[in-house]
């Protein structure tokens, strides 16, 4: 696996597109997190669920709430890193370098594992970034921090990692069947924001919640209602987590099946 990662690293290290997107992701998440208070103040107006509640007065950035709130917001920007996965896969088809890798002696399984390796590295990177920002935010709220509260809700950070990894494997799967960067990105957006919502309206709630994008997004549900409705304490549901991981495995296997059958 280490060897496959080294090969993948060599492919990315001089690619400006790779570094630009990774940097953009890091900057966007950092900026929004650092200004979360004013962000929420403005967002407030748009959130109909929470009438007359000033979120900036709530302990949204204190331990342990910060983990849920931060990972929820950061989850919106996973798409930037998904673009890294898509371009890295589709460029290998455009330049016929996937073909050359196989000719030079990689097995198709190894090739796919090296791309899944890239997905893992990106998910890990973003998770660590969120972890560090969360710690910074939590410790700078000017309230007494009690040790256990820092770590009680780290399950949200774990769920964030799963959310990203499964989403990236899904993006990898799309790029693998479509082979072209632009089209893959369009399909990613169209399915995520148009097709699946339409699909979920026509399906009963019990089913629509388990469509792939909903499953990934519902790992961490909208967190701010808990400040209005005390009874509405969201938790990471184990069932949802298992479903998400299941989707990751399915998209991984489908990718392998399709890639094995492909003439490169």
């Amino acid at each position: 696996m280490l060897k496959l990662l080294r090969i993948e690293f060599r492919k990315q290290v001089t690619s400006s597109g790779f570094w630009i997107l990774v940097a953009l992701h890091a900057i966007v998440i950092s900026l929004i997190s650092m200004n979360l208070n004013s962000f929420l103040k403005n967002a407030n107006i748009m959130i109909n669920d929470i009438p007359d509640i000033d979120l900036s007065l709530k302990p949204v950035l204190q331990f342990p709430d910060v983990w849920q709130n931060l990972t929820y917001i950061a989850g919106y920007f996973k798409i930037i890193l998904a673009l890294v996965v898509i371009t890295s896969v589709s460029n290998e088809f455009t330049n016929a370098t996937a073909r050359q890798n196989i000719i030079d002696g990689m097995s198709r399984r190894q090739w796919l594992y090296s791309k899944i390796g890239l997905a893992k590295i990106l998910a890990l990177f973003s998770t660590f970034l969120v972890l560090i920002i969360g710690l910074l935010l939590g410790f700078t709220q000017g309230v007494q921090v009690e040790m256990p509260t820092i770590f009680t809700r780290l399950d949200y950070v774990l769920a964030y990692f799963v959310e990203l990894l499964v989403y990236f494997i899904y993006a990898l799967f799309l790029a693998l069947i479509i082979k072209r960067t632009g089209l893959s990105i369009i399909l990613l957006l169209v399915y995520d924001f148009i097709l699946e919502p339409i699909l979920s309206w026509s399906l009963p709630d019990q089913i629509s919640g388990f469509l792939p994008m909903s499953t990934i997004d519902n790992l961490n549900t909208f967190p701010f209602t808990k400040y209005v409705d005390i009874g509405n304490q969201a938790v990471i549901s184990l069932e949802q987590l298992v479903w998400a991981i299941g989707y990751g495995v399915v998209f991984g296997f489908l990718s392998l099946l399709i890639f094995n059958k492909k003439d490169l």
Partner: peptide, 30 residues
């Protein structure tokens, strides 16, 4: 296949890597 040197249809390399880096990558694969 690692014991085979092969060139099919056209040279396929990573455009943003230089010649040396491209060969280093191939050496890793092989």
């Amino acid at each position: 296949r690692k014991k085979i040197g092969a060139l099919l249809d056209k040279p396929n390399f990573y455009p943003h890597l230089n010649g040396f880096q491209n060969l280093k990558l191939v050496a890793d694969i092989k």
